[in-house]
């Protein structure tokens, strides 16, 4: 389940705007009006870096997330996916 996402290309939904905050960022989705706190700067960098890499796994590695934390980060990404903050890459530009 999480494993599958690791090898897929993902990116930020076009309906989402980020506002930098000291703890990380606020992500606001203009379509579903969901506001989400990204509570760590690494989480923000990861989300924003997704579009620049071929897979979630390489994004995690590029950002320097330790392997033992990958499950938590991927779980967070899946949470963001359920509210369309991020999407599988093929759907991002639609």
């Amino acid at each position: 389940m999480h494993e599958q996402m690791l090898d897929e290309p993902w990116g930020v939904s076009p309906s989402v705007a980020f506002r930098p905050e000291p703890f990380g960022a606020l992500a606001y989705h203009f379509g579903n009006r969901k506001l989400t706190f990204l509570k760590r700067p690494e989480m923000v960098r990861l989300v924003q870096h997704l579009a620049e890499t071929d897979t979630v796994r390489s994004a995690l590695q590029d950002i320097g997330i330790p392997a033992e934390s990958h499950n938590a980060y991927v779980g967070a990404l899946r949470g963001l996916a359920t509210i369309d903050i991020i999407r599988p890459r093929g759907e991002v530009s639609e």
Binding site: E3, L35, T36, F37, L38, E68, A76, G79, L80
Partner: peptide, 30 residues
């Protein structure tokens, strides 16, 4: 049982990374 996917995990939880808020609860703001 013996899945190593399990956890040699850090203490980090999803809740430490993201938190969702619905602004529909903030009535009357807009």
């Amino acid at each position: 049982m013996n899945e190593d996917i399990k956890n040699e995990q850090s203490d980090l939880l999803v809740e430490d990374l993201i938190e969702e808020v619905s602004i529909d609860g903030m009535c009357g703001v807009y």
